[in-house]
């Protein structure tokens, strides 16, 4: 049981780290949004899943409350994170930031 929790936490930490390093490594805004959004969302799913399982195993009022609230936080994170990154990408394109080394840019042709 404990090993399983540690495994989930480790996977979450690894993918969150991947997101943070993608932010440093990639060349322009859009590719950074790619890395940051995907990896932090996926990593947070595992981190919070560890908390949920821990709460349900602990049981009782306190553990149940912890699990349900963590699940709700995960739900909101899963909805808001891609939406926010989508808004940022659109704002960046409207602000005049072009993708570096793009082979095709249909949105610019439209505007």
């Amino acid at each position: 049981m404990k090993v399983f929790l540690y495994l989930l936490l480790a996977i979450g930490a690894i993918f969150n780290g991947l997101g943070a390093f993608a932010l440093i490594r990639f060349p322009d805004v859009y590719t950074r949004i790619h890395g940051a959004t995907k990896c932090t969302t996926f990593g947070s799913i595992f981190s919070i899943l560890a908390v949920v399982i821990y709460g349900f195993v602990k049981g009782g009022g306190e553990g149940g409350t912890l699990a349900i609230h963590a699940l709700l936080a995960l739900f909101f994170l899963l909805i808001t994170n891609p939406t926010g990154s989508h808004a940022l990408a659109r704002g960046a394109h409207r602000a005049g930031v072009r993708p570096v080394g793009a082979v095709v840019d249909r949105l610019e042709e439209k505007e």
């Binding site: 990639f26 080394g101 793009a102």
Partner: peptide
């Protein structure tokens, strides 16, 4: 996520905006 890991390590990108 595996895909992003691959691209972070190798840096092979060819980006563009398609419709």
């Amino acid at each position: 996520n595996i895909d992003v890991a691959y691209r972070v390590i190798t840096g092979r990108i060819k980006p563009g905006i398609v419709r």
